[in-house]
């Protein structure tokens, strides 16, 4: 029974946590890809920026959340989303729009976004230093231990407060995005533009507005993902580094330009990661006595060590590019 709890803690919960983060990030990437037709490499740094804004605001008003009974960082999240959305629109105006106006190939925009990555990283490090910092400045991180009502289950299931916020906010964000894309006039126009930009223009849809809306949504989502990740662990300026590959793998697995696919892809990549680094030896241990003598169970039966975690999204990426480059849900742009 304890082994099962161990599995739930290390795979189910931990996979849902990374899955949610990757899903929110991948939705942003896939929206940008479907509207502007380029892989936006600076996306993970927009996440870091969002988390950094929360850090700044929380440090400035550390006690603000206590009166409402929520961590200050969560209270500051909407403000950080606003700031990150503004940053995204600003970056587009300064860096990407002139390149688009020149009619460059999409790969030049990719290189431009790498330049933006470095600019953002440099700025964040310049102001925050290089160390890790907790977003829980004045609050205490609650940890919930749920004991299982079974005999023999001594270890509890452990969920932390930021993880619960993460699950709830992810759900809200996905539902909100769904409603926006399917019910609102702008959301439908966004889908139309991702389907056929020329026709969208010929229909009188103002493509500049759609581009701006896309950046606002992507920026706000990036702030959510970055903040919730930093809440769960800590804030680090090089956060983006470990996010970029999983996010792009998730977007491509789901089918580029396909927001729901990106959500699914995010969870696929998140669970694949945790399953790959999980030590399966633990689950087999109860059966140790019934195993034949010649079969000695090694103490470590993980597919890859945690230090090679990055191999997992890469492997998924390669596999999907080889077998199904349009992704699971048939993306639009290849």
């Amino acid at each position: 029974m304890n082994e099962l709890v161990f599995f739930i803690n290390n795979v189910v919960i931990s996979g849902s946590v990374s899955g949610s983060i990757y899903a929110i990030g991948a939705v942003g990437v896939t929206l940008i890809f479907s509207i502007m037709r380029f892989a936006h490499f600076a996306h993970a740094d927009m996440m870091t920026f969002g988390a950094f804004m929360v850090l700044l605001l929380t440090t400035a008003f550390p006690a603000a959340g206590a009166s409402l009974g929520v961590p200050t960082a969560v209270l500051m999240l909407p403000l950080a989303m606003l700031l990150t959305a503004a940053l995204a629109v600003g970056i587009d105006k300064i860096f990407y729009k002139p390149l688009r106006a020149h009619g460059v190939k999409s790969i030049v925009l990719v290189i431009g976004s790498l330049g933006v990555t470095l600019i953002l990283q440099g700025l964040i490090r310049l102001f925050s230093g290089t160390g890790a910092q907790s977003l829980y400045v004045d609050d205490r991180k609650e940890i919930f231990r749920l004991a299982l009502p079974f005999e023999g289950a001594r270890a509890p299931i452990v969920v932390t407060e930021p993880q619960i916020y993460l699950f709830v906010i992810t759900l809200v964000a996905v539902v909100a995005l769904h409603l926006f894309l399917n019910r609102s006039r702008l959301g439908k126009a966004m889908r139309a533009m991702s389907d056929n930009p020329e026709l969208a223009q010929a229909s009188g849809i103002n493509t500049h507005t759609i581009v701006a809306v896309t950046w606002i949504i992507a920026g706000a989502l990036a702030a959510i993902a970055g903040t919730l990740l930093s809440l769960d662990v800590t804030f680090k300026p090089d956060l983006s580094f470990f996010l970029l590959l999983p996010i792009f793998a998730a977007a491509i697995v789901g089918g580029v330009g396909h927001p729901y696919g990106a959500v699914v892809g995010g969870f696929v990549v998140g669970f694949a990661e945790t399953l790959a680094v999980f030590n399966w030896s633990v689950l087999l241990r109860p059966f140790r006595d019934s195993l034949p003598l010649w079969l000695e169970l090694p103490s470590n039966l993980a597919f890859v060590g945690t230090e090679y975690k990055i191999v997992v999204p890469f492997f998924i990426l390669v596999a999907i590019l080889v077998w199904r480059p349009t992704g699971l849900f048939k993306g639009k742009v290849i």
Binding site: G115, Q121, L123
Partner: peptide, 19 residues
């Protein structure tokens, strides 16, 4: 921190040259 600023300069350089 001053050395971190070089990251910024490289990024600016890339975007400026492209444009």
């Amino acid at each position: 921190r001053a050395l971190q600023a070089r990251v910024l300069v490289i990024g600016l350089l890339i975007t400026m040259v492209l444009r």
